[in-house]
Design a protein around this nucleic acid. Sequence first.
DNA 1: TCCGCTTTGTTGGAAAACCAACGTATTTAT
DNA 2: ATAAATACGTTGGTTTTCCAACAAAGCGGA
Lengths: 232, 232
Amino acid sequence: MQQYLTQFSHILLFEHIPQADLLRSLNCLNAQVIHFEKGNIILHQGEPARFIGIILDGSVNIISSDISGNHTLVTHLQHGNLFAETFACAELDSIPASVIAAEDSVIMLLEYKRVITGCRNGCMAHSLLVTNLMRSIARKNLRLSQKLSILSRRSTRSKLIAYLSTEKQKSGTSRFMIPYDRQELADFLCVERSAMSAELSKMKKEGIISFRKNEFELLAVHQDDGCAPPSV
Amino acid sequence: MQQYLTQFSHILLFEHIPQADLLRSLNCLNAQVIHFEKGNIILHQGEPARFIGIILDGSVNIISSDISGNHTLVTHLQHGNLFAETFACAELDSIPASVIAAEDSVIMLLEYKRVITGCRNGCMAHSLLVTNLMRSIARKNLRLSQKLSILSRRSTRSKLIAYLSTEKQKSGTSRFMIPYDRQELADFLCVERSAMSAELSKMKKEGIISFRKNEFELLAVHQDDGCAPPSV
DNA sequence: TCCGCTTTGTTGGAAAACCAACGTATTTAT
DNA sequence: ATAAATACGTTGGTTTTCCAACAAAGCGGA
């Protein structure tokens, strides 16, 4: 376990936990560190959600298969990230996807039941772990909601405005950089790149926005043509 | 506090917690029960996220205001629901929306810090509360992800197929009822009602689905034309 | 500098979604 | 039972998006 101490410092789940406490706590949680070769299955779709996974090294793919046998890559996660934590915390009888090592990887598995059951040693680290876990899930929740509010717009233009507004708000300044190139932005907004590019030009011509490369400026905001509030 | 015992039984956050324990625990958490008149502000946008709210009676609106002063109704929540739990668990410095009583309401506020700090009495209820909270957030997370995977489809048809597939999977049977009328379904999918209706007819004619009122049957599933995996 | 490669913007035709308006069926109220 | 209201399907014209193909601009290496 000692040998992974350097990795631990990059893992948000372990934030604010002193190393000594962390080691004691992981021991108390009976954390397992396992090496998986590329292509090996870490968690099988359909099994009960027991574990929270932490990628200490390597990366994994989350793959969901439907009844007809179609596989879809849900996402790819790099080292430092958690996986299946949502499934475990939701206490699902059956996880809706498999987790597969995308390359040779080192994975730590924590048993959810142990995480949430306060340990008799009353270790502080344990309770911090739960708080960190909760924060991580809650923040993911906020990101999902935000993206949802963008994708619920009907037109390319209003998706762009919704996205740029949130970026502007995040940055605090009127001019800001976005972390995507045009293709990535189009993918993020789920629209077609060239159509989006055309729309951007049109908006620039109309004086709504200005941009150069990845630096944008949102000049005027408008009445929204959004759809009904997300009733999830 | 006693007087609200009947309401408590409908609140998922309190699931599996015996009443006696619950009362003791709420006391130990210093839970406040407050009456708000219609229109009064329960939580102000911009304030630090300290509280988890529980609607014991009445209902609330979540309203977000942007810099230009546009207000948008994010959602409406009925009694029995939680609110602001995501903000609190995400430990935001500043909550991104206000919570306003939509009618005369009875609200319970729990201080997040107290909830996550194990109490010295070591009460079992306390730890159950945390588990329940976590489960609730994680499940919301799953719902959001699922909706996101539907809205990231580009065409009305593939949104319909994505939605009907998940409903089919949920129900377990090939024929299933959906909880929306046509207008609500269109709103949920963020498409136009009449266009959706037309698409449904077309799909029926092609033999992909059949339906009568709210009872649907998904006959064949197809290659997906989905977009890139959600990189949230 | 020149050449190739990638990214971004532009354009035109095809397809899809939007929108309003209307006809029909079903439900609710009187 | 009748009338009114609501929900659903259909249609035609308009707008937007998609798609493929190409042009222009930016970038890196030889």
